[in-house]
Computed example of a mutant assay.
Amino acid sequence: MTQRILSLIFALVGWFSIIAQYYLMVKNIQISFAEANIRFFSYFTILTNIIVAGYFTLQAFNRIPKIKKPGILTAITIYILIVGLVYQIILRSTWDPKGLQRLVDELLHTIIPILVLIYWYLYENKNKLNYRQILPWAIYPLLYLFYILIRGYFSDFYPYPFINAINLGYFQVLINSFGILLLFAALSMLFVRIGKSLNK
């Protein structure tokens, strides 16, 4: 199976999961449509899966050569693994989805992270990875955190319980966020180290 075909399959899985989740949100909407859309795109899970699906789409159609630059796939892989790990460790026990919601839930938080990890192993140019890339990789999750805290202050909506400043207070939210930042740093250094090891 060629890289482009694999990219296309992964892109289709990604877009199906995102669109299905959006359908489920609209189907069960209990707030204004505009607010529901803002909240939908306020989840790190959704935003990161959109990045993943977009990346695979561009790869499948061989668009924008810059996305092949070493480190971009690694950053995306780390982001989606954080989605998966945080869900499995913290969030899975907080609800019990059924039917289509369960399928979509597993795709977004379990299957897609595994697919991206496999793709990284097969196609990332690992010998070009270096520790200096970690700081730029951190821009996206940091911007997301700032956005969520600022919007949450004005809207009282926080997409995840561990960053809910209303219930936890800002000090605990900062501690929780720092813990996730440490997870990000540890994963980033691990991927760079593994990349170097695999290319010896």
Score class of each variant (00 low, 15 high):
I118D: 08
G14V: 07
K126H: 13
K128V: 05
Y79H: 08
I111Q: 02
P70W: 03
Y23D: 14
L108V: 03
L58M: 12
Y170M: 15
V86M: 00
N28E: 11
I118G: 09
V116A: 09
I38Q: 06
L182P: 04
L145G: 11
G54T: 12
Y160W: 00
G71E: 02
P141C: 07
S32E: 10
L149W: 00
L73K: 03
L183S: 11
Q172N: 11
R39M: 01
F178N: 13
E35R: 10
I72Q: 00
G71I: 01
I148N: 10
F191Q: 00
Y160D: 09
Q88Y: 06
V26K: 02
R63Q: 08
G54S: 06
L183E: 12
L135W: 11
I194K: 12
L142N: 15
K200V: 10
L107I: 01
Y121M: 13
I18R: 03
G195N: 07
L108M: 05
K66F: 14
I112C: 02
R4A: 13
I150Q: 07
L149T: 02
T110F: 05
I46C: 10
T57Y: 06
I80V: 15
I72D: 06
W120A: 08
I112R: 00
V192L: 03
P65Y: 01
K126N: 01
I166D: 14
Y87R: 01
L149N: 07
L8H: 01
N127P: 08
K126R: 02
W15H: 05
L115N: 06
V116Q: 12
P113S: 02
A60T: 06
G195D: 03
A165L: 02
P65T: 10
I118K: 01
I118W: 09
A11K: 01
